[in-house]
Design a protein around this nucleic acid. Structure first.
Lengths: 215, 215
DNA sequence: GTCAACTTTCTTGTATACAATATTAAGGTG
DNA sequence: CACCTTAATATTGTATACAAGAAAGTTGAC
């Protein structure tokens, strides 16, 4: 029940940025956006502030706000950070996970397996996301969980790409099994290291893809 | 050279929130702030958006924005997250730190020692901050570094308190030595675990203090 | 044709005006 | 006196108006 038009616009813009609708360095013209959303500049400007604050765009005084799509280096850094955060979540989850979450995790993993068997990348993608989110939750630190969710969302578009690699689905599934196993037996360090490499490998795959496209 | 009044106001408000000038749940009256800063409501509103986006305040549509000071639980979660992030920085830094940074770190540690000898908590506080920031930088991941700096800043006010504990300065110094040593010999896991407990203990000290104040 | 100074136009930043909703006060009813 | 209804007031959200700086276009000298 959002009455604030500005917030809706901010959410829309955020999605557009995530989906790569805007080029890097592109200026977000207030007037253009205003007529595009059928509002005045005021709510547009408030929405732009949100983008800038969350790091999706950059603001140059008296010049405007510009989209800041992460380059290859920053993306790799983000993937590495995600990997480390997931490792942390895994470490904490191994010590704190409840039976309910362990059950939910098993169920999510089964649905992943199902999607993988049906060679359904989209389905796998969705269920995989859930699998990881359960781990964030199981770390029992809502502040950390929020950070993890935020970064997961930020990397969404890039994570999706690497799933297309041949054999990646099966590999990912076998990693999931190891994660689940480590969490079940409460092996914190094992859970951390497996999760770390599980996510880090996504970054590497993505890197490979980017490199291959440059030729 | 910031021409935008709104940004300056946002920074000011942020500092006021960090320093605990506002009570939890307090409403930030736009009109009051406007005359306080001698501007119209427009830049105030943009500044408030920044606060809301960075999680320092909450916005209820048609009601206003309210300060959201973290409670004991959230603070503990933030300290734990900080501890884990520092551990990650330490782990990466152990593998990547340059000779220059190792030197800078040693120097910063010496200045900490100096301040500790002179029983100068404020000096120690400042140098200690620098010590940790060098580690963030040495992790060679600017995205992660930014996150670490942000959280460090957010916890500033709370970290300061626990330094008053008797004997904490000496204890902190001996922890620093261990950290430095682990980084020097490139022992990633050691660096991570020492840093983790070094920061985590701050959370615990803070917790003790809060608990003692409640009586 | 190139470059520089100037002028025009465009765009952002801030102030003010208006609209819509929430809060508070007042008044009436049982 | 409590409670509901309703009017007054205050506050947020959005639109518009104005000010100031940046970008673009023009003119003229060489």
């Amino acid at each position: 029940m959002d009455i604030r038009r500005a917030d809706q616009i901010a959410a829309s813009l955020e999605q557009l940025v995530f989906s790569g609708e805007f080029r890097d360095g592109e200026r977000l013209d207030e007037l253009r956006l205003a007529e595009q959303f059928h509002v005045s500049r005021t709510p547009i400007r408030e929405a732009l502030q949100v983008l800038v604050t969350s790091g999706l765009a950059e603001q140059v005084p008296r010049r405007g706000v510009f989209i800041r799509q992460p380059g290859p280096v920053e993306l790799m850094e983000m993937f590495e950070t995600m990997a480390e955060i997931e490792a942390v979540c895994g470490r904490l989850a191994a010590m704190r996970i409840t039976d309910e979450d362990l059950e939910a995790l098993t169920a999510a993993n089964d649905r992943c397996l199902q999607a993988a068997r049906e060679s359904d990348p989209d389905g796998y993608y969705a269920e995989n996301e859930m699998f990881h989110q359960i781990i964030y939750r199981a770390a029992a630190n809502s502040f950390l969980e929020k950070q993890a969710l935020h970064l997961q969302n930020r990397l969404k578009a890039y994570r999706r790409i690497q799933l297309r690699f041949r054999g990646r689905l099966d590999q990912s599934m076998s990693e999931h099994s190891k994660i689940l196993h480590a969490l079940k037996e409460g092996n914190a360090e094992k859970a951390a290291s497996v999760l770390r490499s599980h996510v880090a490998i996504q970054g590497e795959k993505f890197h490979q893809l980017v490199a291959s496209l440059k030729r």
